[in-house]
Amino acid sequence: MERQFKTFSIVAAGAIFIGLPVLFYTMGDVPRRSAFKEALSVLTILAFMLMLGQFYLARSNVTLLALFKPQVIQRVHKYIAYTAIGFFLLHPFLIVLPRYFEAGVKPIDALITLLTTFDNLGVVLGLIAWGLMLVLGATAMFRMRMIKRFSIKYRNWRYFHGALTVGFVGVALWHSIELGRHTDMTLSALMIALAAAGVALLLRLYRDAIPLCTLKSVPTLKGAK
């Protein structure tokens, strides 16, 4: 029975975070471009969906913890997160990459224009999200060094990591809706719903943990009953 639940959870996750986005992409009423550009669009959508999936590979998802060992969940969380972050670090370059195969503006000129366009809300949001993601990836990769160097409790680092993740996802989601070519109403609604549910799980975990920490630090008055 436990094995069936594990299989069901994996299939359900694949259907929600991969199957539905691909389905909505194919059903979207958007003029198609070259196969290379469309492939980059699909990869970008899936990479972002996998980033949203990180909310559900955390300690806040008690259902998943009941099915899989924490070490396994953490390993999958790291692999997916680092892969998605690596892809998005290349995102600005992948946007202009197809211009190598087209006539017109040179890729480097297009990239410079992209990175210096501050009068476009979608572009500015993308630059902010890219910066937040860079900090998120670096602090996650070097978390043990940071904890030792600044004498930070691991629990407090988790709070920082969670807050930074929420900030990044919020800005990146806004950016994708503002500029995304394939993020129509249906796909946007799916992203917002998954992000909201994931943030709710995280906030519930922190809400349950913070009062316990606070109570432990309250001194007991002598003579109190």
Rank of each mutant, 00 (worst) to 15 (best):
M1T: 05
R3M: 14
F5S: 14
F5Q: 14
F8C: 02
I18F: 01
G19N: 04
G19Q: 03
L20I: 15
P21W: 06
F24S: 01
M27R: 13
R33Y: 04
K37I: 05
L40Q: 04
I45F: 00
A47N: 07
A47V: 12
F48E: 00
M49G: 06
Q54D: 02
F55R: 03
F55D: 02
F55Y: 15
F55S: 08
L57T: 12
A58D: 07
T63A: 12
L64E: 03
L64N: 03
L65C: 08
L65V: 02
A66H: 09
L67H: 08
Q71F: 11
V72M: 10
I73C: 07
R75Q: 12
V76M: 10
H77C: 03
K78S: 09
Y79H: 11
I80A: 07
T83E: 02
F88C: 01
F93R: 06
F93A: 13
F93T: 03
L97M: 09
F101M: 13
F101H: 08
A103G: 14
V105D: 07
V105H: 07
K106M: 13
P107M: 00
D109G: 03
I112P: 05
I112M: 12
T113H: 14
F118G: 02
D119Y: 07
N120T: 10
L121M: 12
V123Y: 07
A129K: 04
W130H: 14
W130S: 11
G131Y: 01
L134T: 04
R143G: 08
M144W: 15
I147D: 10
F150S: 08
I152G: 08
Y154W: 15
Y154P: 00
Y154C: 03
R155G: 07
H161E: 08
V166G: 04
F168M: 11
F168P: 06
V169E: 05
V171Y: 08
A172H: 10
L173H: 10
H175I: 01
G180Q: 09
G180R: 10
D184I: 02
M185D: 12
L187N: 02
A189C: 03
A189P: 06
L190F: 05
L194F: 07
V199E: 09
V199F: 11
L201K: 01
D208L: 13
L212I: 14
C213H: 14
T214R: 15
K216W: 01
S217L: 12
P219F: 04
G223D: 02
K225H: 12
